[in-house]
Amino acid sequence: MANLNLKINGKTHTVDVEEDTPLLWVLRDHLGLVGTKYSCGIAQCGACTVHLNGEAIFSCSMPVSIVGSDEVTTIEGLSEEGDHPVQQAWEEIDVAQCGYCQAGQIMNAAALLKKNPSPSMEEIENAMNRNLCRCGTYHKIREAVAKAAKI
């Protein structure tokens, strides 16, 4: 077991967990931040996407001991009022079906737009292709990322 200080959504949290515990399960089971989802656990679906120093990563495949003092942002901390341009665009376009994949989609889209504020449709697709949506909301996700880039 290790005592770790994690910087999550602008606050420092101390957790006592095994070092190999994936960041995903620390967030979900130890910190109650369940907005970050589990679906495959092997970096294939993107449901667990969070930001590590602004980069979109798969938290299911990131042992918590590697996180160190890097800044973690989860869907709960993406914006204070839930009004990040990507969240607004998702709301506007009404993207979700079951909604389970959408936190991961939003985090991935937000990281993309930070790096590339006005991506082409091809760039959007290249970035978003790593997130699965079993309900098939892909058309709306494309539309919403493009819309968020304009907010």
């Binding site: 839930g82 969240q87 709301e91 009404d94 979700a96 936190a103």
Partner: peptide
């Protein structure tokens, strides 16, 4: 085109799903 009534909860990561359920004292 009325919007999904859960959309804001979904887009802000609120605990909506079964997997998100937690109760003090429960085991896994």
């Amino acid at each position: 085109p009325v919007k999904n009534v859960d959309s804001r909860a979904i887009y802000t990561g609120k605990p909506l799903y079964g997997l998100d359920f937690y109760r003090e004292g429960m085991l896994h």
